[in-house]
C-alpha cells in the first residue's frame, strides 16, 4: 500500500514538476506568473486526444503532436498577449492580467465550441498494472515518472550546453545586460515560450490519460504554482523538488486522511510555507525587483 502510494505520488509529482518547470522558466525570464499556462496544457491534451482518437495516429506520434502543438500555442500566446507589454516595459501586474485574460478566453472558447464533455483515453493505456513487491503499480505512473524526468533532464542539458540555453540563463539574471551583449531578446523569449509549451504538451498528455480531458483541466496548474513556491519561484531545480514533494504529500493525504481535504491541504501548505520559508527551498526572488 505504501509503495503504491509512493509511486502514484511520484508520478503526480513528476507531472507537477513538469508544469512547475515550465512555469518557472517563464517566470525566471519575464518575472511574472503566467496564469495562461494551464490553458496551454489543456489545449495540448486536446490536441493529443484528437490525434490519437480521431486521426487514429499511434500514441508516440500523438504525444509528439501534443508537445509540438502546445509549444506553438504557447509561442503564439507570447506574441499576441505579452510581447507588446514587454516592449512597453509594463509592470508585472499587467502581464498577470493579460495572462489571466488569455486563460479565461481559451478555456471558455473550448467550453463554448467543443463542449464541457469529459474525454477519456482508451483503457488499454490508462488501466494496465504491474505487480511489484506485492503492490499493484500503474504502467502509466511508471511512464509518467520516466518521461517527466527524461524531459526535465533534456531541458537541463539544453540550458547548460546550448548557445540559446546559456543566453536564457544569462537573461534570467539580467535581461538588459544580456541584450547589451548582443542577444536578440525577442527570439530568446520566443524560445523560452516554445520550451515551456513543449513541457505543457507533455504534462497535458499525461494529465489527460490520468484524469481525462476537459476544458477546466488547466486548473491543476495551481498545484504547479504551489510547487514552484515550495521550491522557490524562478528556480528550476526548486520547481522539480517542489513538484515531487507536493505530489507525494498530496497522495499521502488523500490516501490516509481524505481526498476531499487534499486541495485544502495544498493551499494551506502554501500559506504556512509563505510564513515559515518565504523564499522556498532554492529561491532567489523574495521581493519584487526595483
Amino acid at each position: 500500500m505504501l509503495i503504491q502510494t509512493l509511486v502514484t505520488g511520484l508520478a503526480i509529482g513528476g507531472i507537477y514538476a513538469l508544469m512547475a518547470v515550465g512555469y518557472s522558466l517563464v517566470f525566471s525570464i519575464l518575472n511574472f506568473s503566467n496564469f495562461a499556462y494551464g490553458s496551454i496544457i489543456m489545449l495540448g491534451a486536446y490536441v493529443g486526444y484528437y490525434l490519437l482518437m480521431k486521426a487514429g495516429l499511434p500514441l508516440a506520434v500523438s504525444v509528439a503532436g501534443s508537445v509540438m502543438g502546445a509549444a506553438f500555442l504557447c509561442y503564439l500566446n507570447e506574441r499576441m498577449a505579452y510581447s507588446t507589454l514587454r516592449k512597453r516595459n509594463a509592470a508585472s501586474l499587467y502581464f498577470m492580467i493579460s495572462a489571466m485574460g488569455t486563460a479565461i478566453f481559451l478555456e471558455n472558447l473550448v467550453y463554448a465550441t467543443i463542449g464541457s464533455r469529459f474525454y477519456a483515453f482508451p483503457e488499454i493505456i490508462t488501466q494496465q498494472n504491474i505487480t511489484f513487491w506485492g503492490a499493484s503499480i500503474g504502467v502509466l505512473d511508471v511512464f509518467a515518472i520516466v518521461f517527466s524526468f527524461t524531459a526535465i533532464y533534456m531541458l537541463h542539458y539544453f540550458l547548460q550546453h546550448s548557445r540559446v540555453g546559456i543566453a536564457i540563463r544569462a537573461a534570467s539574471y539580467d535581461m538588459q545586460v544580456c541584450q547589451l551583449n548582443g542577444v536578440n531578446i525577442t527570439r530568446l523569449v520566443g524560445w523560452v515560450f516554445l520550451l515551456a509549451g513543449a513541457l505543457a504538451g507533455l504534462s497535458g498528455m499525461f494529465l489527460g490519460m490520468k484524469y481525462m480531458v476537459y476544458p477546466t483541466m488547466g486548473w491543476i496548474t495551481n498545484k504547479a504554482y504551489i510547487a514552484a513556491v515550495i521550491g522557490g519561484l524562478g528556480s528550476l531545480p526548486g520547481a522539480v523538488v517542489g513538484g515531487l514533494i507536493l505530489g507525494v504529500l498530496e497522495t499521502l493525504v488523500s490516501t490516509y486522511v481524505s481526498s476531499v481535504i487534499r486541495d485544502v491541504f495544498s493551499f494551506s501548505l502554501l500559506v504556512v510555507l509563505l510564513l515559515v520559508l518565504p523564499t522556498g527551498l532554492f529561491g532567489k526572488y523574495l521581493e519584487e525587483k526595483v
Binding site: 507589454l85 509594463a90 499587467y94 492580467i97 493579460s98 489571466m100 485574460g101 488569455t102 486563460a103 478566453f105
Partner: peptide
C-alpha cells in the same frame, strides 16, 4: 471577458 482583458492590456 478574456479577450477584453488581453485587449485592454495590449
Amino acid at each position: 471577458y478574456g479577450l477584453l482583458l488581453v485587449a485592454i492590456m495590449v
